[in-house]
């Protein structure tokens, strides 16, 4: 029903190549997250799939059929925009009903579908309000409501949560995930927040400068990053990278160790260092340790690890958790 495939898709704005050439398969019912740093072409890729931009080359297949030249409305995709893009002078009801009205459905079925969507999204009490009388989260839900009533083959989300505050974001994240479980429709979700990517995705596509760096499940990317970029991008706090003598000792140009894979001790260990900053989060403490001859490493320890600024500590990477990379940045396996 809702599979999407990109074949050699590229996009050029003037002289500026945003997407060199991408091949990608999204199978039916999957929750796929595009993640990458700002300006890497996530939105552009999503808009290419939506049909809001024309491809410069390649093919887009939706449901197995060539959709490269189809108008946006004909692709049977729904999109939720970062700015919500609600119609400001229409009530919530009319906003949600708009796609149905445009599709020429009869009033009775429109009413029924709008009521259904409103119930799913807890919007029943707000149907007669205008968008500007709603909170950010409610607006977001209206935008989602407008997207689901059409029963599209796939949903496209462009950073839908980035305008919400942290607590609401966690909430909406959950709601969107639940919606996906309920509807089982393909969802393509763009974010630059790797926590969103990790928590929601069935499959993450890591983009960098318009290239796909790696595709995989969140845990695959976390456990077996293909290259330095993915290793550094997935995981929070960032993976520590060490080059030079120590890396050569491991037979690599660069080695990477995640902060949570470093054991700390006050008496003995592989590397000795001085605690620079200790960030106490309660459950965890992130220590920034200046290690002699290596630089600053971040380590995650339990919330009650008794160190403070200026203390001497010893760090040891956990056995088997050291990622090795060659001089081109690719993983050595």
């Amino acid at each position: 029903m809702g599979s999407i495939a990109l074949r050699n898709v590229s996009k050029v704005f003037g002289a500026h190549t945003v997407i060199p050439a991408i091949d990608l398969d999204i199978s039916d019912g999957e929750f796929v997250v595009f993640v990458g740093p700002s300006g890497c072409g996530k939105s552009t890729l999503l808009r290419l799939i939506a049909g809001l931009e024309d491809v410069s080359g390649g093919k887009i297949l939706i449901d197995g059929k060539d959709a490269t030249e189809l108008a946006p409305a004909k692709r049977r995709l729904s999109m939720v925009f970062q700015s919500y893009a609600l119609y400001p002078h229409m009530s919530v009801r009319s906003n949600i009903a708009f796609p149905l009205k445009m599709a020429g459905e009869d009033q009775a079925s429109i009413d029924r579908k709008v009521a259904d969507a409103a119930r799913v999204l807890n919007l029943t009490d707000y149907l007669d309000r205008k968008p500007r009388q709603l909170s950010g989260g409610q607006r977001q839900r209206v935008a989602i409501g407008r997207a689901i009533v059409r029963q599209p083959v796939a949903f496209l989300f462009d950073e839908p949560l980035s305008n919400l505050d942290a607590a609401l974001r966690v909430n909406m994240r959950l709601e969107i995930s639940q919606l996906h479980q309920q509807l089982k429709t393909t969802m393509v979700y763009v974010t630059h927040d790797q926590v969103e990517a990790m928590t929601m995705a069935d499959k993450i596509v890591v983009l960098n400068k318009g290239n796909v760096e790696q595709v995989g499940t969140p845990l695959e990317l976390y456990r077996r990053p293909d290259n330095l970029f993915v290793a550094g991008f997935i995981g929070s706090p960032k993976m520590n990278f060490i080059t030079g003598e120590i890396a050569r000792g491991h037979g690599a140009h660069t080695i990477g160790v995640r902060p949570e894979h470093i054991d700390l001790s006050t008496s003995a260990g592989a590397w000795r260092g001085t605690v620079g900053v200790a960030e106490h989060l309660g459950s965890d403490t992130f220590l920034h340790v200046a290690v002699d001859g290596v630089g600053t490493l971040t380590a995650r320890v339990g919330g009650d690890f008794p160190v403070r600024h200026g203390d001497q500590v010893y760090l040891s990477p956990q056995e088997g958790r050291v990622h090795r990379f060659n001089d081109e940045g690719s993983a050595i396996r």
């Binding site: 108008a71 946006p72 409305a73 995709l77 999109m79 893009a85 119609y87 796609p99 407008r146 059409r150």
Partner: peptide, 14 residues
């Protein structure tokens, strides 16, 4: 707003 126009376009409005 450009995004509103695009949203309408995706909603099937001519």
């Amino acid at each position: 707003d450009e995004e509103q126009k695009e949203a309408a376009q995706m909603d099937g409005a001519g």
